[in-house]
């Protein structure tokens, strides 16, 4: 799931686990521990019904986290996802209401979302400002567009067949969950094992060196932002199907929850690290914490406070870990410290 790739048993024995892999394992342990605690405290927690609720509550963030992982690994960030989500929902809704066939409506919504991603990447390149500012501007404008095209009113009146995406079941599981699992495996596999996927890590790790190594940085980044936007769009389509309506209020503050989940999942906001597996665990971790709030009867208004605290905590933790790694390296065996630092 992370980066111990070469598969040579001897190497793995010599190095045991990379720091990233150790972190992911630790996170998995935390998730399991949290689940156990919750199950012990609240017997109804382990209900299959509650488990499903828990998973479905964060299904939209989960879709978005897949693309956000790629963006953050590349050293960027995308705040516009929380506007793309309702945008895609509304576009789908308007097309369906106008009588478009379901696949066409979904296709157009996803294409439009992909276009937003391409716009983000292009503006980032042309204006040469941090993607955070570019995507902030996109988020704002797009939220305005959402209001304008709906007049602020929810869009409803969808055909029965459309509801399957959000409410249907496959193999005894919610269809959206199955779709997510398939996408997570595919994107995770691409990011970890495909040339383009690995180039995302190279760009995030050292852009200049990536260019010198022949990586087409701009093209890869366009693909990354298009992927991120498209997945936010897909989340929007799923949301429209789940609620059988589309509203500008969808996805409020979801960008923050998604970034938090990815950061918790082990991706550094400086780029170059992170994995889809870690991000999925991060989403799960957030979902459980939020669910725990629900269970214990604490107001759901606490959610924003919790995500704020968690994003700061995750970043501080990652920074402390990076610092520790550096100092360990500086005094590591076989090192000549004088040469290491004098330059």
């Amino acid at each position: 799931m992370t980066s111990a790739h070469t598969g040579r048993v001897a190497d793995i024995a010599r190095h045991r686990l990379t720091p990233a892999a150790r972190y992911t394992l630790g996170l998995a342990g935390a998730v399991v521990g949290l689940l156990a605690i919750m199950a012990a405290l609240y017997p109804q927690f382990a209900d299959s019904a509650n488990v499903e609720v828990l998973a479905m509550n964060f299904i939209l963030e989960a879709f978005m986290a897949l693309g956000m992982t790629a963006v953050i690994v590349s050293g960027g960030i995308d705040l516009s996802v929380s506007a793309v989500l309702p945008f895609a929902a509304i576009v789908t809704g308007l097309l369906l209401r106008a009588g478009a066939p379901v696949p066409i409506a979904i296709g157009i919504a996803l294409l439009a979302s992909a276009g937003i991603g391409a716009l983000n990447a292009t503006m980032r390149q042309v204006l040469r400002v941090h993607p955070f500012i570019v995507t902030l501007a996109t988020m704002l404008s797009l939220k305005g567009v959402n209001l304008v095209i709906t007049g602020g009113a929810p869009v409803a009146g969808f055909p029965e067949s459309f509801a399957f995406l959000g409410r249907g079941r496959l193999l005894g599981l919610p269809f959206a969950l199955v779709l997510f699992a398939a996408l997570a495996v595919a994107i995770g596999w691409l990011l970890a094992h495909h040339r383009y996927g690995q180039q995302v890590y190279l760009i995030g790790g050292n852009v200049r060196a990536a260019r010198l190594s022949g990586v087409n940085v701009e093209r890869v980044l366009v693909l990354v932002y298009v992927l991120c936007s498209s997945l936010a769009g897909l989340a929007g389509v799923v949301a429209a199907s789940q609620y059988v309506s589309a509203s500008t209020g969808f996805g409020q503050n979801s960008e923050l929850r998604v970034i938090t989940a990815v950061a918790i999942g082990g991706a550094s906001l400086n780029g170059g690290t992170g994995s889809v597996g870690g991000s999925v665990l991060g989403v799960l971790f957030l979902a459980i914490v939020y669910n725990a709030f629900g269970m214990s009867g604490v107001s759901t208004y606490w959610q924003d406070v919790v995500s704020g605290v968690m994003v700061l905590g995750a970043v501080l933790l990652a920074q402390a870990a990076a610092r520790e790694g550096r100092t360990r390296r500086a005094v590591g065996p076989g090192e000549r410290p004088a040469a290491a630092q004098v330059r």
């Binding site: 941090h130 955070f132 503050n253 923050l256 970034i259 906001l269 208004y301 606490w302 959610q303 924003d304 406070v305 919790v306 995500s307 704020g308 605290v309 994003v311 700061l312 970043v315 501080l316 920074q319």
Partner: peptide
């Protein structure tokens, strides 16, 4: 910590 992250976090905490 990068300012936009810090203030994005405190934004969420304060509003929440």
């Amino acid at each position: 910590v990068a300012p936009f992250l810090v203030t994005l976090g405190t934004m969420s905490i304060a509003r929440g």
